Simulated assay, not measured.
Amino acid sequence: MPGKVIHYFAGDYTAKGFYPLYDFSFQGLDQVFMLQGLPYTGKVDVMKKLLKEWEEKDFNVEAIHTSTDNQGLDGIIIPQLKIGIYGAETPLLNFDLDHVEYINMNAAINFDQLKDQKDQILSLKNKIKKARLEAVNSFKKGLEIHDELEEIYIDEMNFAKADQLTNDLINHLFTTKSTSDTNPVVKRRFFGASTPEGVTDYIPNLTEDLNKRYFIKGRAGTGKSTILKKIAAAGENLGYDVEIYHCGFDPVSLDMVIVRELGFCIFDSTDPHEYFPERESDEIVDVYAEAVTPGTDEKYADEISNLTRGYKSYMKEGVAFLKEAKQHDDELASIYQDAVDTSVLDSLFESIQMEIGKK
């Protein structure tokens, strides 16, 4: 039976700029194969082949997706072997270099074939950079409007009731300390991201093996992220490994916490990642009903509608810029494609596969 593949993002273009969390995914590994070189050298093809090979060998694999390309990968991890393969352009920081093996992916490119296209390559790279910057600017404007929306609900919040709700949740979720005798591991990720094809998330995949799922319902500014931060801190303090999923729009905020040792997740189940209970064990936590002045939605209906429409328009605009960047990126990839020696790629794949097989 094939192994299980879990999917997530570890980097995203957000209202705060590009926000990398790759180091958290690659912590604690015995070996990392660092695929160095241009993005168009066949890195993704090699990683996809490795993922497929080890999934078919009944190993669980983590697929770290690329937010700028819905078909791309930034890396894969084989937890049982404590091995990772990393292909993103963002450097890994605070990482033990003794555990890194560098793979020169540029070896697969015949750069002589690209000399006549130097100007076109430079032009496309500038267009990609500009479009991604415009996407971030759009998301930033959207967040500014979203902050205004939050203020409406913050002014109508009963914070004492919100605190009580949080404390009750923590006491319900954590009845004992962890039985593990190792230091807790905190992994920070994104379950979703703004991509060229729109907002994408992997919540069903990440939560399908959990016994208990809590769906937080509420409005902007009702403290959903604060609740999640307190739950994550409580779990870590009690010795549990915690998966923390940041918001792909505003990465300072949190959208989900998973404690696999206890078999539960709790997540912000509102637009653009709104889900509803499907299993008997699923449960809704309604912050609006518990801690917001009744009738707030109706009282500020017009203002809420206008602000919501405003920030969503900027989100849509940002995604359009990411789509534009992807189109330029595809043009660039097609230029490099003819210069890539697939036999060298096959050789690089085989060498990595052989090294992993020694574990």
Rank of each mutant, 00 (worst) to 15 (best):
K127M: 05
F26V: 10
I154S: 04
T166E: 09
A108L: 06
T179N: 14
D338S: 15
I103Y: 01
K187M: 06
L238A: 08
Q117L: 10
G248Y: 07
T90I: 13
E261K: 11
D58H: 14
K217M: 08
Y19Q: 05
N158S: 15
L169V: 04
V259D: 01
D302Y: 09
I152K: 02
H7W: 06
G310N: 12
N94D: 13
K48H: 13
N237E: 15
R188Q: 09
T166F: 03
M354S: 14
I335Y: 03
K141Q: 09
L81R: 10
A108P: 08
I231F: 06
I77W: 00
D282R: 05
T222H: 07
H7P: 05
D45Q: 13
R213N: 10
K52F: 09
K141E: 10
K115L: 02
F249L: 10
E101M: 09
K229E: 10
F18M: 12
H246K: 04
T41R: 09
Q71R: 12
R213A: 08
D330G: 10
T200V: 12
D255C: 01
T200A: 06
V285N: 09
E56F: 00
K299F: 01
G218E: 11
V186F: 05
D163V: 06
Y86P: 03
L307A: 05
I227V: 15
Q337F: 14
E151F: 06
E355D: 14
K127E: 04
N205H: 10
P294Y: 14
E197T: 12
K187P: 01
F264Q: 11
N104Y: 04
V344W: 08
M354E: 11
D346S: 14
K4F: 01
E55W: 06
F139L: 13
M315W: 08
K358T: 15
D58A: 15
N237H: 05
I121K: 00
T200Y: 02
E324W: 03
G84C: 01
D69L: 02
T270F: 02
K125V: 06
N70V: 12
D241A: 13
L122D: 09
S334A: 12
H99W: 01
Y8D: 00
R219C: 13
E208T: 15
G192W: 02
A232E: 02
I83Y: 01
Q80I: 08
G295Q: 09
E290W: 00
Y8M: 07
D23C: 07
Y13N: 07
N306F: 08
S138Y: 10
Y245C: 03
N183Q: 14
E144V: 05
T226D: 14
I83E: 00
D147G: 11
A131K: 02
L348V: 13
S25T: 11
V46E: 04
E236P: 01
L149I: 04
L29M: 06
T175C: 07
I128T: 08
K130N: 08
S347R: 14
P79V: 07
E208G: 04
L92P: 03
N104T: 12
D74V: 07
L50M: 06
A162I: 05
V44F: 11
P39M: 01
G357I: 09
I78L: 08
Y86A: 03
L38E: 15
T166D: 02
K16I: 00
L35T: 08
V199P: 00
S25G: 13
I78E: 00
L210S: 10
L35P: 00
L262K: 07
K125P: 02
F264N: 05
A193S: 15
D271G: 04
Q120S: 15
D168A: 05
D271H: 11
D330H: 06
K212E: 11
